[in-house]
Simulated scan of single mutants.
Amino acid sequence: MRRSGKAVIANASIANAAIAAVTLTALCTGAWLLSSGTQPHNTPPQPSAQEAQQAQEAQEAHADASVRHSALPATPALPPSPPDRIRIPSLRVDAPLMGLGLTKTGSLDVPPAGQRNLAGWYEAGTTPGETGTAIVAGHVDNADGPAVFYGLGALKRGSTVEVDRRDGGIAVFTVDAVEVYDAKDFPDEKVYGAANRPELRVITCGGGYSRATGYQGNVVVFAHLTGSR
């Protein structure tokens, strides 16, 4: 039986709210930097302050418009279907997706660190393309070098993210914003909260770096569904 839109949003919100420790600690050790030093050219790219400000303004404008006009999504939501692969053409990312659950401490689990070109999606929440907020996460690096989402901080607003679904379709998302947050200031509701249209979050580690504790925060890509094929 197909779930109603309101049920999808409610169920996804409940599932996403279960993610208690949002810093994705296992993603953030910076194993490559620890093994190769902390030279500036080793650190992954981050969105600039200007880009972050523009992204914030764009998100606020969308939220205001939605409230004023009760805007419906321009692209129809897709039925639920697990994702199998994620592609970000501008970053040359083309990676399989595995299902992720929660650890015993309530944080989002992560793909095996040894598999550099592997990402995961939170399978208790929304599937990419259906109404709600779908969550994808992956490593920024491992002991051997850059991993699947090393370049995520360089992604630009308007870029495309494609997700291959198990039903044979492809969900196409457009990037609204790329932001970086310190772990202590991570905005849980903004990242994991319910949405009235199909949205996607792609998360990896970023921000400042310390040899003692690894990366100090997370890079988060905000995107919404703009097509399918």
Rank of each mutant, 00 (worst) to 15 (best):
P112D: 10
G101C: 09
T105N: 13
A95T: 13
T133V: 07
V178T: 08
P111C: 08
F173C: 03
P40I: 09
V22Q: 11
T131Y: 00
E130P: 05
L33H: 08
D109T: 13
T29I: 10
V110K: 01
R197W: 06
L200H: 03
T43L: 15
C28H: 01
Q50V: 15
A177H: 00
D84W: 07
A113I: 07
F149V: 04
S70G: 11
Q46H: 14
A15F: 02
A52L: 12
V22H: 06
T25A: 12
T133A: 12
E179G: 04
L34A: 10
V8A: 11
G138P: 03
G158H: 07
P112H: 06
S210N: 12
R2N: 09
P146A: 14
L155W: 01
R166V: 08
V163I: 15
I19R: 08
V136N: 01
A195E: 10
T131D: 04
T105H: 07
D185I: 01
F222S: 09
N117R: 10
A15H: 04
N11K: 10
R157N: 13
I19L: 12
S13V: 05
Q56D: 14
Q54M: 14
E199G: 01
D167E: 04
A61D: 08
A71S: 15
D185Q: 12
A212P: 04
S81I: 01
I135Y: 01
P73G: 13
V148Q: 09
I9R: 11
V220S: 04
C28Q: 02
T127F: 09
N196D: 15
L100I: 02
N117G: 12
V191N: 03
P146I: 09
C205N: 04
D176M: 05
A119L: 05
P89Q: 14
S36W: 07
P44H: 07
T133W: 00
T75E: 14
A26Q: 08
D144N: 13
V67A: 15
G138H: 02
D185C: 01
A55G: 15
A194R: 09
A55M: 03
D84N: 11
V93G: 01
T103K: 11
A17I: 01
A10R: 12
D84S: 15
Y150K: 04
L33N: 03
A21C: 06
P79T: 12
P111R: 02
A10K: 14
D188K: 13
G106A: 10
A77D: 10
I135Q: 01
Y122W: 06
G206I: 04
F149I: 06
D109I: 07
A177P: 00
G214P: 10
D141M: 09
P80V: 05
T133H: 06
V136Q: 01
P45Y: 07
I9K: 10
L118Q: 11
D144Q: 14
N11D: 14
